[in-house]
């Protein structure tokens, strides 16, 4: 099977929830394939967003580009509905002054239909997420 970026809106992936939103910097910017556009948190933590693949995927590597994020937690679900999330990844990021944090995470047991990405804390009052890509394969296209 061909490996693709599973986190692209052009592939049908959607952000179905975000706890904060500036209409100028909406959460869709995370999955538009362009690191120049971003989603911002708008004050206080934790903040989170939920990605829906609309299919069953197996993720091998997750790449997150962000700024000022301190503690990141990713949960995943393999349900048809966005419920039953289970703890998957938790990472403390390093502050990268003046350039994007580029976090590559090799994933174990990457079966998912949804991802819930939680920014637990940040290095400043606000943080940004510029892109998430998930390398892996489509297991099952949902009908």
């Amino acid at each position: 099977k061909m490996k693709t970026d599973l986190c692209l809106s052009s592939e049908g992936t959607e952000v179905i929830l975000a706890t904060s939103s500036d209409e100028k910097h909406p959460p869709e910017n995370i999955i538009d394939g362009n690191a120049e556009t971003f989603w911002t948190t708008t004050g206080m933590f934790p903040q989170e967003f939920v990605i829906c693949f609309h299919k069953h995927v197996k993720i091998e590597k997750l790449i997150i580009q962000s700024y000022l994020v301190r503690t990141l937690r990713v949960e995943k679900s393999t349900s048809k509905e966005p419920v039953g999330f289970q703890q998957w990844i938790e990472k403390d990021l390093v502050h990268t002054e003046g350039q994007l944090q580029n976090e590559e995470i090799t994933a174990h047991d990457g079966h998912a239909t949804y991802l819930r990405v939680i920014i637990q804390s940040a290095f400043d009052h606000f943080a940004s997420v510029h892109s998430i890509s998930a390398e892996g394969t489509v297991v099952l296209n949902s009908s």
Partner: peptide, 10 residues
Amino acid sequence: EKVELFQGLV
């Protein structure tokens, strides 16, 4: 200010 900073990163 922060949003402007985020915009200038890429």
